[in-house]
């Protein structure tokens, strides 16, 4: 039943593309700035055959995953510690509340000063931005484990460390996953942004350069590539999450 509903959503997208094709083809909208989808599709296909494009794509993905992986490890570890030790939480929480709302792009100039314009700076920016949602969700998840769960651990003779490892972390897993899903999108945003600000390769730079040299269909092909990456990554993540945390979806539905 659910997939039937989804089909209409995809049909609607096709319909919009068709309208776009017609409007752009008849030059009702400016062809130069918004070429018809058919033209974009052709340049997209050409792109797929060019090795430069694949270098851009892989270097973007590489930066993104490198930064994301560091953010996950850092934020989950710190989040578990902050969720477990009140003292550490009280020490760091005000700082986090202050830094978190800061738009990550605002620190790029400062990051360039310290780290240069290379990959180190970009990865740093990605780590910076992706850390917050994972950190906050992990802290939340660990702190809000039902007291009955913790008491259960205690009446089975577990110490604090065992309770954290075997009871708190699994209980917080759905929150951690939510944070990781949000950060996946953020990592992509910051990858593209940092490449546009400074860079020698990457999809972000490709989009910017295409626009500057007035290769408009290529620019759109680049944008579509980014959209596709975001869409696919989220799809894979949600599928994995559903499979691994099925118990949570079902268990919370029941109550």
């Amino acid at each position: 039943m659910k997939s039937e509903h989804k089909i209409w959503g995809y049909v609607f997208i096709l319909f919009l593309i068709l309208v776009w094709e017609i409007l752009s083809g008849a030059n009702i909208i400016e062809k130069l700035f918004l070429p018809p989808p058919s033209k974009i599709a052709v340049s997209f296909y050409k792109l797929l055959l060019s090795s430069d494009f694949w270098i851009d794509l892989t270097s973007s993905l590489y930066r993104m995953f490198f930064g994301y992986a560091i953010a996950v490890m850092l934020a989950v570890t710190l989040g578990i510690l902050m969720g477990s030790f009140k003292l550490l939480y009280n020490l760091l929480d005000p700082l986090i509340e202050f830094l978190r709302p800061l738009p990550s792009v605002a620190i790029i100039p400062a990051a360039i000063l310290f780290l240069g314009i290379g990959d180190v700076m970009k990865v740093f920016i990605i780590v910076w931005a992706s850390t917050w949602p994972i950190l906050l969700n992990t802290i939340d998840g660990i702190r809000n484990v039902d007291p009955v769960q913790i008491d259960t651990g205690r009446v089975f003779g577990m110490n604090k460390l065992e309770i954290t490892r075997s009871i708190k972390i699994p209980n917080a897993a759905p929150n951690i996953a939510t944070g990781m899903r949000i950060s996946l999108a953020i990592a992509l945003i910051l990858t593209i942004t940092s490449e546009m600000v400074s860079g020698t390769n990457g999809i972000g730079l490709f989009i910017l350069n295409s626009q500057r040299s007035f290769r408009i269909p290529e620019m759109y092909a680049g944008i579509i590539t980014v959209a596709a990456i975001g869409f696919l990554l989220n799809l894979i993540f949600v599928k994995l999450e559903r499979k691994l945390l099925k118990w949570n979806k079902e268990a919370t539905r029941q109550t």
């Binding site: 009955v148 769960q149 259960t152 009446v155 089975f156 118990w247 949570n248």
Partner: peptide, 17 residues
């Protein structure tokens, strides 16, 4: 000797995962 407790709120006490 060793003891344990069976909680009133079994659904909150079981490990859902």
């Amino acid at each position: 000797g060793k003891l344990t407790l069976v909680f009133q709120d079994y659904s909150k006490s079981l490990f859902q995962w």
